[in-house]
Design a protein around this nucleic acid. Structure first.
Length: 433
RNA sequence: GUGAGUGUAGCUCAACGGUUAGAGCACCGGACUGUGGAUCCGGUGGUUGGGGGUUCGAGUCCCCUCACUCACCCCA
Protein backbone atom coordinates (compact mmCIF):
# COMPACT_ATOMS: atom_id res chain seq x y z
CA UNK A 1 0.00 0.00 0.00
CA UNK A 2 1.49 3.29 -1.06
CA UNK A 3 0.31 6.16 1.07
CA UNK A 4 2.99 8.65 0.19
CA UNK A 5 4.06 8.64 3.81
CA UNK A 6 7.43 6.98 4.12
CA UNK A 7 10.43 7.32 6.38
CA UNK A 8 12.47 10.42 5.60
CA UNK A 9 15.49 10.18 3.35
CA UNK A 10 18.46 8.76 5.20
CA UNK A 11 16.35 7.34 8.02
CA UNK A 12 15.05 3.83 8.38
CA UNK A 13 12.81 1.63 10.46
CA UNK A 14 14.38 -1.15 12.44
CA UNK A 15 11.86 -3.99 12.27
CA UNK A 16 11.53 -6.64 15.00
CA UNK A 17 13.78 -9.24 13.35
CA UNK A 18 16.59 -6.71 12.99
CA UNK A 19 15.89 -5.15 16.37
CA UNK A 20 16.86 -8.51 17.90
CA UNK A 21 20.36 -7.99 16.52
CA UNK A 22 20.51 -4.46 17.86
CA UNK A 23 19.54 -5.70 21.29
CA UNK A 24 22.26 -8.32 21.13
CA UNK A 25 24.92 -5.84 20.05
CA UNK A 26 23.86 -3.31 22.65
CA UNK A 27 23.89 -5.96 25.37
CA UNK A 28 27.43 -6.94 24.39
CA UNK A 29 28.60 -3.34 24.46
CA UNK A 30 27.01 -2.77 27.82
CA UNK A 31 28.51 -5.92 29.29
CA UNK A 32 32.01 -5.06 28.10
CA UNK A 33 31.94 -1.37 28.97
CA UNK A 34 30.67 -2.11 32.44
CA UNK A 35 33.43 -4.67 32.87
CA UNK A 36 36.00 -2.01 31.96
CA UNK A 37 34.56 0.34 34.57
CA UNK A 38 32.46 2.54 32.31
CA UNK A 39 29.06 3.79 33.42
CA UNK A 40 26.15 4.86 31.29
CA UNK A 41 25.27 8.50 30.88
CA UNK A 42 22.24 9.83 29.01
CA UNK A 43 21.94 13.34 27.71
CA UNK A 44 19.36 15.13 25.54
CA UNK A 45 19.21 14.68 21.79
CA UNK A 46 18.75 18.42 21.31
CA UNK A 47 21.39 20.88 22.46
CA UNK A 48 22.09 24.59 22.05
CA UNK A 49 23.64 25.13 18.63
CA UNK A 50 26.63 26.97 20.14
CA UNK A 51 27.73 23.74 21.83
CA UNK A 52 28.75 22.28 18.47
CA UNK A 53 29.96 25.50 16.88
CA UNK A 54 32.37 25.90 19.76
CA UNK A 55 33.44 22.27 20.22
CA UNK A 56 33.09 20.44 16.94
CA UNK A 57 34.52 23.46 15.16
CA UNK A 58 33.16 26.44 13.27
CA UNK A 59 34.82 25.48 9.99
CA UNK A 60 34.17 21.75 10.03
CA UNK A 61 31.84 20.22 7.46
CA UNK A 62 29.66 18.87 10.23
CA UNK A 63 28.92 22.33 11.54
CA UNK A 64 28.90 24.30 8.30
CA UNK A 65 26.64 22.08 6.26
CA UNK A 66 25.37 18.98 8.03
CA UNK A 67 23.53 20.05 11.17
CA UNK A 68 19.79 19.87 11.72
CA UNK A 69 19.32 23.29 13.27
CA UNK A 70 16.07 25.09 13.98
CA UNK A 71 14.75 27.94 16.03
CA UNK A 72 12.41 26.95 18.84
CA UNK A 73 9.40 28.88 20.07
CA UNK A 74 11.55 30.84 22.48
CA UNK A 75 13.75 32.03 19.63
CA UNK A 76 16.73 29.87 20.66
CA UNK A 77 18.84 28.07 18.10
CA UNK A 78 18.58 24.33 18.72
CA UNK A 79 20.52 21.51 17.03
CA UNK A 80 19.92 17.79 16.83
CA UNK A 81 23.31 16.55 17.97
CA UNK A 82 25.58 15.48 15.12
CA UNK A 83 28.07 13.83 17.49
CA UNK A 84 28.26 13.00 21.11
CA UNK A 85 31.44 14.25 22.76
CA UNK A 86 30.36 17.90 23.25
CA UNK A 87 27.23 16.77 25.11
CA UNK A 88 29.15 14.63 27.60
CA UNK A 89 31.66 17.38 28.22
CA UNK A 90 28.85 19.86 28.78
CA UNK A 91 27.12 17.49 31.23
CA UNK A 92 30.33 16.90 33.16
CA UNK A 93 30.95 20.59 33.58
CA UNK A 94 27.31 21.37 34.33
CA UNK A 95 27.10 18.75 37.10
CA UNK A 96 30.69 19.15 38.35
CA UNK A 97 31.27 15.45 37.75
CA UNK A 98 34.99 16.16 37.52
CA UNK A 99 34.99 16.50 41.31
CA UNK A 100 34.64 12.71 41.48
CA UNK A 101 37.78 10.55 41.48
CA UNK A 102 39.29 10.41 38.01
CA UNK A 103 39.57 8.93 35.53
CA UNK A 104 35.88 9.19 34.75
CA UNK A 105 34.57 6.65 32.29
CA UNK A 106 31.27 7.00 30.46
CA UNK A 107 29.43 5.23 27.73
CA UNK A 108 26.41 6.19 25.75
CA UNK A 109 24.08 4.80 23.06
CA UNK A 110 21.90 6.87 20.83
CA UNK A 111 20.92 8.45 17.55
CA UNK A 112 22.98 11.20 15.90
CA UNK A 113 21.86 13.42 13.02
CA UNK A 114 23.79 14.70 10.06
CA UNK A 115 22.30 16.06 6.86
CA UNK A 116 24.57 14.19 4.43
CA UNK A 117 23.66 12.62 1.15
CA UNK A 118 22.89 9.03 2.16
CA UNK A 119 24.93 6.15 0.80
CA UNK A 120 26.11 2.76 1.94
CA UNK A 121 26.97 2.98 5.65
CA UNK A 122 25.85 6.59 5.91
CA UNK A 123 22.48 7.74 7.21
CA UNK A 124 21.00 11.03 8.30
CA UNK A 125 19.83 9.49 11.53
CA UNK A 126 22.41 6.95 12.59
CA UNK A 127 23.31 5.33 15.87
CA UNK A 128 26.52 5.48 17.76
CA UNK A 129 27.85 3.93 20.87
CA UNK A 130 30.30 6.31 22.48
CA UNK A 131 32.87 5.89 25.20
CA UNK A 132 34.74 8.72 26.83
CA UNK A 133 37.38 8.86 29.57
CA UNK A 134 38.37 12.05 31.38
CA UNK A 135 41.31 12.90 33.57
CA UNK A 136 44.01 10.45 32.52
CA UNK A 137 46.80 11.54 30.19
CA UNK A 138 48.89 8.37 30.28
CA UNK A 139 49.15 6.78 26.83
CA UNK A 140 48.55 3.43 28.53
CA UNK A 141 44.93 4.55 28.74
CA UNK A 142 44.84 5.25 25.00
CA UNK A 143 46.05 1.70 24.47
CA UNK A 144 43.56 0.30 26.97
CA UNK A 145 40.68 1.92 25.08
CA UNK A 146 41.91 0.39 21.84
CA UNK A 147 42.35 -2.95 23.54
CA UNK A 148 38.74 -2.75 24.73
CA UNK A 149 37.54 -1.78 21.24
CA UNK A 150 39.48 -4.72 19.86
CA UNK A 151 37.87 -7.11 22.32
CA UNK A 152 34.42 -5.67 21.62
CA UNK A 153 34.80 -6.18 17.87
CA UNK A 154 35.98 -9.73 18.51
CA UNK A 155 32.87 -10.40 20.55
CA UNK A 156 30.73 -8.86 17.80
CA UNK A 157 32.40 -11.37 15.47
CA UNK A 158 33.92 -8.87 13.11
CA UNK A 159 37.13 -10.49 11.90
CA UNK A 160 38.13 -8.40 8.96
CA UNK A 161 39.41 -5.11 10.32
CA UNK A 162 42.45 -2.93 10.73
CA UNK A 163 43.54 -0.46 13.38
CA UNK A 164 45.00 2.81 12.15
CA UNK A 165 46.66 5.27 14.51
CA UNK A 166 48.19 8.67 14.21
CA UNK A 167 49.11 11.67 16.30
CA UNK A 168 47.86 15.10 15.31
CA UNK A 169 50.09 16.89 17.82
CA UNK A 170 49.06 19.61 20.20
CA UNK A 171 48.88 23.42 20.35
CA UNK A 172 52.65 23.45 20.89
CA UNK A 173 53.71 21.54 17.79
CA UNK A 174 50.77 21.60 15.40
CA UNK A 175 50.78 25.27 14.38
CA UNK A 176 54.44 25.25 13.39
CA UNK A 177 53.96 21.96 11.56
CA UNK A 178 50.93 23.31 9.70
CA UNK A 179 52.87 26.40 8.68
CA UNK A 180 55.69 24.22 7.40
CA UNK A 181 53.26 21.91 5.60
CA UNK A 182 51.49 24.83 3.95
CA UNK A 183 54.79 26.32 2.90
CA UNK A 184 55.94 23.05 1.32
CA UNK A 185 52.57 22.42 -0.34
CA UNK A 186 52.47 25.93 -1.79
CA UNK A 187 55.51 25.06 -3.87
CA UNK A 188 53.55 22.25 -5.54
CA UNK A 189 50.18 24.00 -5.58
CA UNK A 190 49.85 24.15 -9.37
CA UNK A 191 50.06 20.35 -9.60
CA UNK A 192 47.26 19.74 -7.09
CA UNK A 193 43.61 19.16 -7.95
CA UNK A 194 40.97 21.88 -7.45
CA UNK A 195 39.78 20.38 -4.17
CA UNK A 196 43.29 20.17 -2.79
CA UNK A 197 44.04 23.76 -3.68
CA UNK A 198 41.02 24.66 -1.59
CA UNK A 199 42.08 22.30 1.22
CA UNK A 200 45.46 23.94 1.27
CA UNK A 201 43.82 27.16 2.39
CA UNK A 202 41.22 25.77 4.79
CA UNK A 203 42.78 22.71 6.39
CA UNK A 204 46.05 21.54 4.86
CA UNK A 205 45.95 18.31 6.89
CA UNK A 206 43.14 17.23 4.61
CA UNK A 207 45.50 17.17 1.66
CA UNK A 208 46.48 13.72 2.88
CA UNK A 209 42.92 12.48 2.44
CA UNK A 210 42.71 13.14 -1.29
CA UNK A 211 41.96 10.16 -3.50
CA UNK A 212 43.37 11.66 -6.70
CA UNK A 213 46.41 9.53 -7.64
CA UNK A 214 48.47 12.56 -8.66
CA UNK A 215 47.71 14.31 -5.37
CA UNK A 216 48.55 11.17 -3.43
CA UNK A 217 51.87 11.07 -5.17
CA UNK A 218 52.57 14.65 -4.20
CA UNK A 219 51.42 14.30 -0.60
CA UNK A 220 53.78 11.33 -0.16
CA UNK A 221 56.64 13.79 -0.30
CA UNK A 222 55.05 16.39 2.00
CA UNK A 223 56.21 16.55 5.63
CA UNK A 224 54.35 14.20 7.96
CA UNK A 225 53.13 15.40 11.33
CA UNK A 226 54.59 12.37 13.05
CA UNK A 227 58.03 13.65 12.06
CA UNK A 228 57.35 17.07 13.59
CA UNK A 229 55.87 16.34 17.00
CA UNK A 230 57.09 18.26 20.03
CA UNK A 231 58.99 16.16 22.62
CA UNK A 232 55.91 15.68 24.84
CA UNK A 233 53.71 14.55 21.95
CA UNK A 234 56.50 12.33 20.62
CA UNK A 235 56.86 10.70 24.04
CA UNK A 236 53.11 10.19 24.23
CA UNK A 237 52.97 8.64 20.77
CA UNK A 238 55.92 6.35 21.51
CA UNK A 239 54.20 5.34 24.74
CA UNK A 240 51.00 4.49 22.91
CA UNK A 241 52.89 2.28 20.48
CA UNK A 242 54.76 0.56 23.28
CA UNK A 243 51.51 -0.25 25.09
CA UNK A 244 49.81 -1.44 21.91
CA UNK A 245 52.73 -3.82 21.47
CA UNK A 246 52.30 -4.87 25.09
CA UNK A 247 48.69 -5.89 24.32
CA UNK A 248 49.90 -7.49 21.06
CA UNK A 249 47.51 -5.35 19.04
CA UNK A 250 48.54 -4.97 15.45
CA UNK A 251 48.18 -1.52 13.99
CA UNK A 252 49.38 0.68 11.19
CA UNK A 253 50.66 4.20 11.70
CA UNK A 254 48.74 6.25 9.18
CA UNK A 255 50.01 9.85 9.04
CA UNK A 256 47.22 10.54 6.58
CA UNK A 257 44.63 9.78 9.26
CA UNK A 258 43.13 13.12 10.12
CA UNK A 259 40.07 13.50 12.28
CA UNK A 260 37.50 15.91 10.93
CA UNK A 261 36.77 17.61 14.24
CA UNK A 262 38.71 20.57 15.52
CA UNK A 263 39.23 19.47 19.10
CA UNK A 264 41.45 16.42 18.61
CA UNK A 265 44.97 16.41 20.00
CA UNK A 266 47.71 13.79 19.98
CA UNK A 267 46.27 10.30 19.54
CA UNK A 268 43.73 9.75 16.78
CA UNK A 269 42.63 6.36 15.56
CA UNK A 270 40.19 4.54 13.40
CA UNK A 271 39.26 0.89 12.98
CA UNK A 272 38.25 0.20 9.42
CA UNK A 273 36.76 -2.80 7.67
CA UNK A 274 37.31 -3.68 4.01
CA UNK A 275 33.81 -5.23 3.99
CA UNK A 276 32.10 -1.88 4.47
CA UNK A 277 32.28 0.05 1.20
CA UNK A 278 33.44 3.63 0.84
CA UNK A 279 32.42 4.62 4.38
CA UNK A 280 34.76 2.10 5.92
CA UNK A 281 35.26 3.26 9.51
CA UNK A 282 33.68 1.03 12.15
CA UNK A 283 34.79 3.36 14.88
CA UNK A 284 36.90 6.44 15.18
CA UNK A 285 38.12 8.69 17.90
CA UNK A 286 41.02 10.23 19.69
CA UNK A 287 42.26 12.47 22.40
CA UNK A 288 40.81 15.92 23.11
CA UNK A 289 42.94 17.31 25.88
CA UNK A 290 41.69 20.89 25.77
CA UNK A 291 37.98 20.55 25.06
CA UNK A 292 36.88 20.76 28.67
CA UNK A 293 38.78 24.00 29.15
CA UNK A 294 37.44 25.36 25.89
CA UNK A 295 33.95 25.00 27.35
CA UNK A 296 34.97 26.90 30.44
CA UNK A 297 35.55 23.84 32.61
CA UNK A 298 38.73 22.76 34.37
CA UNK A 299 41.78 21.80 32.32
CA UNK A 300 41.06 18.08 32.22
CA UNK A 301 42.11 15.87 29.34
CA UNK A 302 39.84 13.42 27.57
CA UNK A 303 39.81 10.60 25.06
CA UNK A 304 37.05 8.59 23.47
CA UNK A 305 35.64 6.95 20.40
CA UNK A 306 32.35 6.60 18.59
CA UNK A 307 31.28 3.38 16.92
CA UNK A 308 28.67 3.38 14.17
CA UNK A 309 26.10 0.72 14.96
CA UNK A 310 24.62 0.49 11.46
CA UNK A 311 28.09 -0.17 10.07
CA UNK A 312 29.00 -2.59 12.81
CA UNK A 313 25.81 -4.58 12.35
CA UNK A 314 26.26 -4.74 8.60
CA UNK A 315 29.43 -6.79 9.06
CA UNK A 316 28.97 -8.44 12.48
CA UNK A 317 28.42 -12.18 12.33
CA UNK A 318 26.44 -12.33 15.58
CA UNK A 319 22.89 -13.61 15.51
CA UNK A 320 19.99 -12.60 17.72
CA UNK A 321 18.95 -14.65 20.71
CA UNK A 322 16.79 -17.68 20.01
CA UNK A 323 13.04 -17.11 20.27
CA UNK A 324 11.56 -19.04 23.17
CA UNK A 325 7.84 -18.62 23.19
CA UNK A 326 4.97 -20.70 24.52
CA UNK A 327 1.69 -20.85 22.60
CA UNK A 328 -1.66 -21.85 24.04
CA UNK A 329 -3.97 -23.95 21.89
CA UNK A 330 -7.27 -24.58 23.61
CA UNK A 331 -10.61 -26.15 22.80
CA UNK A 332 -13.71 -25.02 24.62
CA UNK A 333 -14.58 -22.29 27.07
CA UNK A 334 -13.39 -24.07 30.24
CA UNK A 335 -10.02 -24.80 28.67
CA UNK A 336 -9.75 -21.21 27.51
CA UNK A 337 -10.26 -19.92 31.04
CA UNK A 338 -7.68 -22.31 32.41
CA UNK A 339 -5.19 -21.31 29.72
CA UNK A 340 -5.71 -17.61 30.37
CA UNK A 341 -4.92 -18.17 34.03
CA UNK A 342 -1.84 -20.27 33.29
CA UNK A 343 -0.66 -17.82 30.64
CA UNK A 344 -0.86 -15.02 33.18
CA UNK A 345 1.27 -17.02 35.63
CA UNK A 346 3.89 -17.86 33.02
CA UNK A 347 4.17 -14.25 31.95
CA UNK A 348 4.75 -13.20 35.52
CA UNK A 349 7.57 -15.73 35.69
CA UNK A 350 9.13 -14.06 32.65
CA UNK A 351 8.25 -16.83 30.21
CA UNK A 352 7.19 -15.37 26.88
CA UNK A 353 3.65 -16.63 26.24
CA UNK A 354 1.04 -16.01 23.59
CA UNK A 355 -2.67 -16.70 23.78
CA UNK A 356 -5.22 -15.81 21.15
CA UNK A 357 -8.87 -14.99 21.56
CA UNK A 358 -10.45 -15.92 18.26
CA UNK A 359 -11.90 -19.41 18.28
CA UNK A 360 -10.00 -21.64 15.89
CA UNK A 361 -9.68 -25.33 15.19
CA UNK A 362 -6.74 -27.10 16.78
CA UNK A 363 -5.24 -27.48 13.34
CA UNK A 364 -5.40 -23.76 12.75
CA UNK A 365 -3.93 -23.02 16.15
CA UNK A 366 -0.97 -25.31 15.57
CA UNK A 367 -0.53 -23.89 12.10
CA UNK A 368 -0.34 -20.40 13.55
CA UNK A 369 2.05 -21.52 16.26
CA UNK A 370 4.26 -22.93 13.54
CA UNK A 371 4.26 -19.72 11.52
CA UNK A 372 4.97 -17.66 14.59
CA UNK A 373 8.10 -19.73 15.23
CA UNK A 374 6.79 -20.94 18.56
CA UNK A 375 9.01 -23.23 20.62
CA UNK A 376 6.39 -25.02 22.71
CA UNK A 377 2.63 -25.37 22.40
CA UNK A 378 0.35 -26.20 25.29
CA UNK A 379 -2.74 -28.04 24.13
CA UNK A 380 -5.73 -28.11 26.44
CA UNK A 381 -9.23 -29.46 25.78
CA UNK A 382 -11.98 -31.24 27.69
CA UNK A 383 -10.10 -34.57 27.64
CA UNK A 384 -7.04 -33.06 29.29
CA UNK A 385 -9.08 -31.16 31.85
CA UNK A 386 -10.78 -34.34 33.05
CA UNK A 387 -7.42 -36.12 33.23
CA UNK A 388 -5.68 -33.22 35.00
CA UNK A 389 -2.95 -32.84 32.35
CA UNK A 390 -1.98 -30.64 29.42
CA UNK A 391 -0.42 -31.85 26.20
CA UNK A 392 2.94 -30.15 25.81
CA UNK A 393 4.32 -30.16 22.30
CA UNK A 394 7.90 -29.25 21.40
CA UNK A 395 7.42 -27.72 17.98
CA UNK A 396 10.87 -28.29 16.50
CA UNK A 397 10.99 -32.02 17.27
CA UNK A 398 7.26 -32.72 17.21
CA UNK A 399 7.72 -34.46 20.57
CA UNK A 400 4.54 -34.32 22.65
CA UNK A 401 3.84 -35.48 26.19
CA UNK A 402 1.00 -35.28 28.68
CA UNK A 403 2.23 -33.25 31.64
CA UNK A 404 0.31 -33.10 34.94
CA UNK A 405 -1.16 -29.67 35.56
CA UNK A 406 0.86 -29.22 38.76
CA UNK A 407 4.11 -29.94 36.90
CA UNK A 408 3.72 -27.84 33.79
CA UNK A 409 5.39 -24.71 35.13
CA UNK A 410 8.41 -26.62 36.40
CA UNK A 411 8.79 -28.42 33.06
CA UNK A 412 8.48 -25.21 31.05
CA UNK A 413 11.11 -23.51 33.18
CA UNK A 414 13.56 -26.34 32.48
CA UNK A 415 12.81 -26.19 28.76
CA UNK A 416 13.11 -22.41 28.67
CA UNK A 417 16.54 -22.51 30.28
CA UNK A 418 17.56 -24.85 27.47
CA UNK A 419 18.85 -27.42 29.96
CA UNK A 420 16.93 -30.32 28.51
CA UNK A 421 14.74 -31.37 25.64
CA UNK A 422 11.18 -32.43 26.30
CA UNK A 423 12.02 -36.08 25.61
CA UNK A 424 14.62 -36.05 28.42
CA UNK A 425 12.43 -34.64 31.17
CA UNK A 426 10.92 -37.10 33.58
CA UNK A 427 8.34 -35.58 35.90
CA UNK A 428 7.00 -38.90 37.21
CA UNK A 429 10.00 -39.42 39.53
CA UNK A 430 10.44 -35.89 40.71
CA UNK A 431 11.93 -35.24 44.10
CA UNK A 432 9.39 -33.86 46.51
CA UNK A 433 10.51 -31.06 48.72
C1' G B 1 25.95 20.12 -3.04
C1' U B 2 27.98 16.94 -7.77
C1' G B 3 27.83 12.42 -10.80
C1' A B 4 26.17 7.54 -12.30
C1' G B 5 22.77 3.41 -11.99
C1' U B 6 17.89 1.45 -10.82
C1' G B 7 12.33 1.97 -10.18
C1' U B 8 6.83 -3.84 -12.51
C1' A B 9 2.34 -7.58 -6.60
C1' G B 10 4.25 -7.60 0.55
C1' C B 11 9.45 -9.95 -1.23
C1' U B 12 12.70 -11.80 -5.51
C1' C B 13 12.12 -11.16 -10.55
C1' A B 14 9.82 -12.09 -15.98
C1' A B 15 7.21 -9.77 -20.17
C1' C B 16 10.61 -8.37 -28.93
C1' G B 17 6.96 -1.23 -29.13
C1' G B 18 1.49 -5.41 -30.04
C1' U B 19 -4.51 -9.44 -26.52
C1' U B 20 -6.98 -8.53 -20.30
C1' A B 21 1.10 -7.22 -17.32
C1' G B 22 2.93 -12.91 -15.46
C1' A B 23 5.88 -16.54 -12.21
C1' G B 24 8.07 -18.20 -7.59
C1' C B 25 7.85 -17.09 -2.44
C1' A B 26 4.42 -14.92 1.15
C1' C B 27 -0.85 -14.36 2.44
C1' C B 28 -6.20 -16.49 2.44
C1' G B 29 -9.19 -20.92 1.49
C1' G B 30 -9.87 -26.25 0.28
C1' A B 31 -8.25 -31.56 0.03
C1' C B 32 -7.92 -32.54 6.24
C1' U B 33 -14.29 -32.62 12.33
C1' G B 34 -8.63 -32.96 18.67
C1' U B 35 -2.55 -32.13 16.06
C1' G B 36 1.76 -27.63 12.57
C1' G B 37 5.84 -28.08 8.83
C1' A B 38 5.30 -31.67 3.05
C1' U B 39 2.22 -32.22 -1.41
C1' C B 40 -1.82 -30.98 -4.68
C1' C B 41 -5.92 -27.57 -6.09
C1' G B 42 -8.03 -22.75 -5.94
C1' G B 43 -8.14 -17.47 -4.48
C1' U B 44 -6.81 -12.28 -2.93
C1' G B 45 -3.23 -8.92 -4.41
C1' G B 46 -0.80 -3.92 -9.73
C1' U B 47 -3.05 3.52 -11.41
C1' U B 48 4.17 -0.92 -14.13
C1' G B 49 6.97 5.52 -8.70
C1' G B 50 4.27 10.23 -10.59
C1' G B 51 3.33 13.68 -14.75
C1' G B 52 3.75 14.94 -19.83
C1' G B 53 5.14 13.60 -24.92
C1' U B 54 6.10 10.35 -29.52
C1' U B 55 3.02 6.34 -31.72
C1' C B 56 -2.58 3.16 -34.74
C1' G B 57 -0.63 1.02 -30.04
C1' A B 58 4.03 2.50 -24.36
C1' G B 59 5.83 -1.46 -18.56
C1' U B 60 9.13 -0.96 -22.98
C1' C B 61 11.13 5.04 -26.66
C1' C B 62 11.80 10.67 -25.29
C1' C B 63 11.39 14.80 -21.57
C1' C B 64 10.37 16.43 -16.60
C1' U B 65 9.83 15.03 -11.61
C1' C B 66 10.12 11.94 -7.25
C1' A B 67 12.24 7.86 -4.69
C1' C B 68 16.01 4.34 -3.89
C1' U B 69 21.15 2.64 -4.59
C1' C B 70 26.31 3.47 -5.28
C1' A B 71 30.28 6.86 -5.67
C1' C B 72 32.44 11.98 -4.97
C1' C B 73 32.56 15.15 -0.78
C1' C B 74 32.71 14.09 4.31
C1' C B 75 32.60 10.73 8.20
C1' A B 76 30.60 6.56 12.68
Amino acid sequence: MKTGLTALKGTKDILPAEARLWQKAEALCREIFEAYGYREIRTPIIEPTELFIKGTGETTDIVTKEMYTFTDKGGRSITLRPEYTPSVVRAIIEHRLYLQPSPLRFYYFGPMFRHDRPQRGRYRQFHQVDVEVFGESDPALDAEILEMADYLLDRLEIKNRELLINSVGCPVCRPSYLAFLRQEAEKLKSQLCQDCQRRLELNPLRLFDCKEPTCQGITQSLPKITDHLCPDCQRHFDGLRRWLDFYRLSYRVEPRLVRGLDYYTRTTFEIISPDLGAQNALLGGGRYDHLMKLYGGPDICGIGFAMGLERVLSVAKISGDEEKTIYFAYLGERAKEYCLQLCRELRRLGLSSIIEYKERSLKEQLGRANKLGISWTIILGEEELTQGVVQLKEMASGEQKAVPLDQIIRVLKILERGQKKLADIDWQNRVNR
